[in-house]
Computed example of a mutant assay.
Amino acid sequence: MNPITLSASAARHLNRLSADAGHPILLRVAVEGGGCSGFQYQLDLVEAPEVGDTVVAYDGAQALIDEVSAPLLAGSIIDYVEELVGAQFKILNPQAKSSCGCGVSFSI
């Protein structure tokens, strides 16, 4: 399976959140059924991994992927982008054949 990676930008943002909070903040990335294209990403900030999570680390920051979502995210880059309309974590998934305009929903 192709590795899931955390970008430098995402790591910097997670490290900044952790410093502000005074304890580690981890990004949980999951794929759920639903959305306008069949699957949707669920992103949450958490303090600890759960049993079975895959840990994706870069420069001290960590993202967590559950074992069901991992195959659907294989080869993905977890990024953090700052644009005119706002800043957000973004999943660059090479398996996604199409996605909706919001970028949260996709199909394989």
Rank of each mutant, 00 (worst) to 15 (best):
E32W: 02
E32V: 02
G33S: 15
G33L: 11
G33R: 15
G34R: 04
G35S: 10
C36N: 08
C36S: 13
C36Y: 14
S37Q: 14
S37F: 09
G38K: 11
G38D: 02
G38C: 12
G38F: 05
F39H: 12
F39S: 05
F39E: 02
Q40W: 11
Q40N: 13
Q40Y: 12
Y41E: 00
Y41H: 09
L43V: 00
L43Y: 10
D44T: 06
D44M: 12
L45H: 12
E47W: 00
A48P: 00
P49E: 05
V51R: 13
G52A: 09
G52Y: 04
D53Q: 06
T54R: 04
V55M: 04
V55I: 09
V56D: 01
V56I: 15
V56G: 05
A57I: 09
A57T: 15
A57M: 03
Y58H: 15
Y58D: 09
G60C: 07
A61R: 06
A61E: 02
Q62I: 00
A63C: 06
A63P: 08
L64W: 02
L64V: 08
L64I: 01
L64S: 12
I65L: 02
I65R: 05
E67T: 03
E67I: 00
V68N: 10
S69G: 04
S69H: 01
A70I: 02
A70D: 02
A70H: 06
P71Q: 11
P71T: 06
A74N: 07
A74R: 11
A74Y: 01
A74E: 13
A74T: 04
S76Q: 10
S76K: 03
S76A: 15
I77R: 14
I77G: 03
I77Q: 13
I78T: 10
D79H: 08
Y80R: 07
V81C: 01
E82W: 03
E83K: 13
E83I: 02
G86V: 08
A87F: 00
A87V: 01
Q88M: 09
Q88N: 07
F89W: 10
F89Q: 07
F89I: 05
K90V: 15
I91S: 00
L92C: 06
L92W: 13
N93Y: 04
N93G: 07
Q95M: 07
Q95V: 10
Q95C: 06
A96M: 02
A96F: 01
K97R: 15
K97G: 15
K97T: 14
S98L: 00
S98D: 14
S98A: 13
S99W: 14
S99I: 02
S99C: 15
C100E: 05
C100H: 05
C100G: 14
G101A: 12
C102L: 11
G103P: 03
V104P: 03
V104L: 14
